[in-house]
């Protein structure tokens, strides 16, 4: 027992309709836009600090830099929504850049799809290990992180591999409508398509039910295991796509290329307001989070913050952003 109910039907069965109007309040609506508000606030602050920041050139550079991070964070968000975590994304992405560079001479344009499929399959294996062997996702993907890094080092002979055939990825360096870098456009497309699939199908209900209460989801007969494996698969595939973006921009694959993206990706997810405990959040939030994280990385040096202060500000702003964006009415226990 706990909470109240409108009226006692025994006393007044006819006059009180069973259903009355009532949606989210204004406050709740504002809370759901917090990640965007945080993004705009940051952009404004950077512009005030240096009016030259708000130019087309620096913005274009910033969103192009952000594209791999957006894709990585978007994929991992699915796993987080299911109540797990995927720590392997950055290592898997590095491995994928190596695979990309190695396969390109033989496979040409198909390499992009092959790398994404391979990374997706590796993600699926992690998902299966988590579900079938009942090992916490944190542990499975921590193991994966180490394994993938090592494999990447071995097959690449611990060094970068040059991308020889630049034609098959040239399109990624084009611009949509003249201004929007193609890689960022692809990242947006990934977020939009995955979000739309979630929204339009029962998957969103499944993912949220699993994230909030896996036992309840299981006893309601939802396909818990399939959904979780699917989340890890998409997360892996996103790591593969991010690898294609990185390799095509750097014209090489390297066993450590994406390693420094793991913590920024996790930061992007939480800054977006997705609950790290699962259930509450969205890919759109992670997109906003990834942009905040990238703007901080790119923007602070541009506006002339000394490099020591850069790290301090970065940390402080991440914490402050989470304070703003986390919708505490949806998350029972803050851990």
């Amino acid at each position: 027992m706990s909470t109240p109910v409108i009226a006692d039907p025994a006393s007044n069965p006819a006059a009180e309709p069973a259903v009355v109007k009532g949606g989210p309040t204004l406050g709740q609506r504002v809370t759901s836009f917090m990640p965007v508000i945080a993004l705009v606030a940051l952009l404004t602050a950077l512009t005030i600090a240096d009016p030259d920041f708000l130019t087309q050139r620096s913005l274009t550079a910033a969103v192009r830099t952000s594209a791999p991070l957006v894709v990585l964070a978007a994929g991992a968000t699915l796993v987080v929504l299911c109540g797990g975590i995927d720590l392997s994304i950055a290592a898997l992405c590095s491995l994928s850049t190596v695979l990309f560079a190695m396969w390109l001479p033989d496979m040409g344009g198909l390499t992009i799809l092959a790398v994404i499929a391979a990374a997706g399959a590796i993600g699926a294996v992690q998902g299966l290990a988590h579900v079938l062997l009942r090992i916490p996702s944190f542990v499975v993907t921590l193991g994966g992180l180490s394994i993938f890094s090592a494999i990447a080092l071995v097959i690449s002979d611990a060094g970068p591999i040059r991308v020889v055939d630049r034609d098959s990825t040239k399109w990624l360096n084009l611009y949509v409508a003249g201004y929007v870098p193609m890689s960022f456009f692809v990242a947006l497309l990934v977020v939009a398509v995955v979000s739309l699939i979630l929204k339009l199908t029962p998957l969103e209900s499944f993912v949220k039910a699993i994230g909030y209460s896996e036992s309840a989801a299981r006893l309601a007969g939802t396909p818990v295991d399939k959904v979780k494996v699917a989340a890890f698969t998409v997360s892996g595939a996103c790591a593969g796509l991010a690898a294609v973006m990185l390799a095509s921009r750097n014209f090489s694959g390297s066993p450590t290329m994406a390693d420094n993206l793991l913590l920024p990706a996790v930061a992007a997810i939480v800054v977006g307001g997705t609950a790290i405990t699962g259930g509450h959040g969205s890919l759109w939030r992670s997109l906003a989070g990834a942009l905040v994280v990238t703007l901080l990385r790119v923007g602070l040096p541009i506006v002339g913050v000394p490099s020591a202060w850069e790290q301090i500000l970065y940390g402080a702003i991440i914490v402050a952003a989470v304070a703003l964006t986390l919708d505490r009415s949806k998350v029972a226990i803050i851990k």
Binding site: S205, A216, A217, L219
Partner: peptide, 15 residues
């Protein structure tokens, strides 16, 4: 085990 507390009445009912 019976319900998913933070989800809506509607989504719980059609889960």
């Amino acid at each position: 085990e019976g319900m998913v507390g933070p989800m809506s009445v509607a989504d719980n009912m059609t889960l």
